[in-house]
């Protein structure tokens, strides 16, 4: 699965946001605030692992999941032109307001 498909699901985005905020988490900690079963969560985690967006490592007996933000660069690259367009528009707004000063 590629990064765009991986990110298109709101549950998977929630998982990534949570890992980004809270660091490495076990399945138990991840299910705590998600209205889905452990099985469903495992499925989502496996998809995120395939998309290389998270990594899972055993720490002792506990399996911990952590964010791997590197592939998100692809998303940044794709969004860059949309993002840069706003710079021009907001500059134009500033100029418009300056010239309209009365």
């Amino acid at each position: 699965m590629d990064i765009f498909t991986a990110l298109a699901d709101p549950t998977r985005r929630h998982i990534l946001e949570k890992l980004n905020r809270e660091g490495a988490l076990s399945i138990k900690r991840l299910t705590a605030d998600l209205p889905i079963s452990r099985q469903a969560l495992t499925k989502h985690l496996n998809r995120l692992i395939k998309a290389k967006l998270i990594r899972a490592d055993f720490v002792g007996k506990e399996k911990l999941h952590r964010l791997n933000p590197k592939p998100l660069q692809q998303l940044d690259n794709w969004l860059a032109p949309f993002s840069e367009r706003w710079d021009k528009r907001l500059e134009a707004l500033q100029t418009y307001l300056e010239n309209d000063d009365d």
Binding site: L7, R13, L16, E17, N20, P69, L72, L75, D76, L79, A80, F82, S83, W86, D87, L90, L93, Q94
Partner: peptide
């Protein structure tokens, strides 16, 4: 651009 693909600007 934040990690999950939102654009933000402050002016």
């Amino acid at each position: 651009i934040d990690k999950l693909g939102n654009i933000e600007r402050k002016v």
